[in-house]
């Protein structure tokens, strides 16, 4: 590298950061790209560009940047988190899940407080990946049965896709702002999921032999987020909570949520048996969740190596 390039790259990065802060993600992407041309051995430049591309929803670009960043800096929480989001966006939930678990691992290993507040976000993202995996399997299962339910689900999906395309078109033409568009899409998605779940429930009720509604038992559910746990920790009184959310609470108020007795973060212990139970529930539940079959792993080779990192 010619002398001075490293300095030039830093200058460009600072300009990129300024753009990013102002919401000018295209501008930021441009500056980060120039910085990378000057100095391609700084992993942070790649994660920064990935963040800009994430905002622009350029998923393929995010994936490339994250992989290059991870090549240079393997224990890279941020890159794995961004990678996972992009992988989920392009519908590769298996890869997304393994990236998310990496991000979580590096995040909890870290002793920095600021890094730790990401844990709750990543935990939620892990669940999202798991859920998407179920959904894909479930759709497959229903499709194989080829009955009225699958026809109806397809109709709902088509409607939902039309709604999303409509929002996209309006965002493209500028008549709806990006933030509004995203909010609307999120709303549409929740509506769609609600309708689909109602539909499935209705069918399950009418045909109890073939389908049972999947309900997570209370002992696997975190009392704070009401979601199934993925990294449960146990407190002095024997109650378990999701690690990330309980720590969010303890940072504000160092007390046991149930008894209000003093409780320090250092007193928490992982509840491995419960963790296994949650995992097993997700994997082996026969109701709405269809068992993962061999060979289901997406065949895209670009990030296949990451599962062995």
């Amino acid at each position: 590298m010619p002398p001075g390039n490293e300095y030039a790259a830093e200058q460009l990065k600072a300009q990129g950061n300024a753009c990013f802060k102002n919401g000018d993600y295209e501008g930021a992407e441009g500056y980060y790209s120039q910085a990378i041309q000057k100095n391609s051995s700084n992993p942070l430049l790649f994660t920064n560009r990935a963040m800009a591309r994430n905002k622009l929803e350029k998923w393929e670009g995010v994936i490339d940047d994250c992989i290059r960043s991870i090549e240079q800096l393997p224990e890279n929480m941020k890159a794995f988190h961004l990678l996972s989001q992009a992988q989920l966006a392009v519908n590769h939930p298996n890869e997304a899940l393994s990236s998310a678990l990496k991000a979580y691992e590096y995040c909890t290993k870290s002793t920095q407080q600021t890094t730790f507040s990401n844990a709750a976000l990543i935990s939620q993202h892990v669940l999202k990946c798991k859920k998407r995996k179920w959904e894909i399997r479930e759709r497959e299962r229903i499709r194989r049965r080829g009955d009225l339910l699958s026809d109806l689900e397809e109709m709902l999906e088509r409607d939902h896709k039309k709604d999303l395309d409509d929002v996209d078109a309006r965002m493209e033409s500028g008549s709806t702002s990006r933030t509004e568009g995203h909010e609307e899409k999120e709303e549409r998605r929740l509506e769609f999921e609600k309708k689909r779940d109602d539909l499935r429930t209705a069918f399950a009720i009418s045909d109890p032999d073939h389908q049972q509604k999947r309900e997570v038992p209370d002992y696997l559910v975190d009392g704070i987020t009401f979601e199934i746990m993925h990294d449960p920790v146990v407190t002095n009184n024997g109650r378990s909570y999701e690690r990330a959310t309980l720590i969010e609470h303890l940072k504000r108020s160092p007390t046991d949520p149930l008894t209000r007795e003093p409780l320090k973060i250092s007193e928490l212990r992982p509840n491995l048996a419960l963790k296994e139970a949650c995992q097993e529930f997700i994997e082996s539940n026969s109701g709405w969740i269809y068992d993962c079959e061999d060979g289901e792993v997406d065949s895209d080779s670009r990030w296949a190596h990451l599962s062995h990192v």
């Binding site: 709750a120 976000l121 939620q124 929740l190 704070i224 987020t225 009401f226 979601e227 959310t245």
Partner: peptide, 11 residues
């Protein structure tokens, strides 16, 4: 950051 999902479940 957890609010929407948790409230959805409560609802």
């Amino acid at each position: 950051m957890f609010a929407s999902r948790r409230l959805g479940k409560e609802l």
